Simulated scan of single mutants.
Amino acid sequence: MDSPFTDLDRPPLREAALRKALLVPGGLWREVDVVPETGSTNADLARRAEEAEGLVLVAESQVAGKGRLDRRWSAPPRSGIAMSVTLAPTEVPVARWGWLPLLAGVAAASAVSRVTGVDARLKWPNDLLVGERKLAGILAERAGAGVVLGIGLNVSLREEELPVPTATSLALAGAENTDRDPILRALLRELEEWYTRWRLTGGDARTSGLLTAYTDACATIGRRVRVELPADRTLEGPATGIDEDGRLLVTTSEGPTAVGAGDVVHVRPTAD
């Protein structure tokens, strides 16, 4: 493996400083680990999901990262944030756990905006966008009695390093700050704040303010979309909102339809 100091524009994360900032009495986060390399932070924490809520694992290099539907995700070492956390909202009905990736999106968009000045918008159900280009992806997976929530955020990738032409990074988006330490701290604090608020309301997205926050930040709403479903089925029409269960509302020629993230292969904008 290369030395962490071979690219001075990409210094290593400071694990001790992160722990000092984030591991506070009464807080959600119980453990923060930074590893030089791993296959998948989600897979690593899935094996430890029964241990405790509030575990945080960050990898400087993730060689087998994945997104929704097992899509591959990769980036050069120290060019982004690849992290996973364990959550166990046992007091929230499981039917409402579908809000967790949307909640993470709200937290990530808020943290990015506050620390870097980049206006990131949300693509339902699990991406952050700058314009039409993907900045980050989110993956929530059941593990034991809880959930492992992963976030991959492109920070300093250069144009030639992007995995696909439709991706982007904070650096390419003109971020005021690309230091990963404050971005990561802000992201975990925002995630804790929204998760705690949502959990204390029993997962009620409306009462917790999550439904409004997500709707305000969602670039999908108001667009005409094509929703690709399994077995080559499709829906097409304007996306009009998000319902109480976090499903996307699409008005088709046959009337309003709600689609859940677990049922969708792709959601693509069409001609507005």
Rank of each mutant, 00 (worst) to 15 (best):
M1E: 09
D2R: 13
F5R: 12
R14W: 03
K20T: 01
G26S: 10
G26A: 12
G27E: 05
L28R: 04
V32F: 13
D33I: 11
D33C: 12
D44Q: 12
A46R: 01
R47L: 15
R47Q: 13
A49K: 05
A52T: 06
L55I: 05
L57K: 06
L57D: 02
L57P: 01
A59G: 04
E60P: 10
K66T: 09
G67L: 07
R78F: 12
A82D: 05
W97R: 07
L100P: 03
P101D: 13
P101F: 08
L103C: 03
G105S: 12
K123E: 02
N126D: 03
D127Q: 07
L128C: 01
L129C: 05
L135D: 03
E141K: 04
R142C: 08
V147H: 00
L149Y: 09
L149N: 10
L157G: 01
R158P: 00
T166D: 14
A167M: 04
S169D: 10
L170Y: 01
A171E: 11
A171W: 05
N177V: 12
D179Y: 01
A186P: 00
A186N: 07
W194N: 00
T201M: 11
A205M: 08
A205Q: 05
G209K: 03
L211P: 00
T212L: 14
T212G: 13
C218I: 09
C218D: 05
T220S: 09
I221T: 06
R226D: 10
E228R: 13
D232T: 11
D232Q: 12
T234S: 09
I242L: 12
D243A: 15
L249C: 13
V259Q: 09
G262K: 15
H266Y: 14
A271F: 15
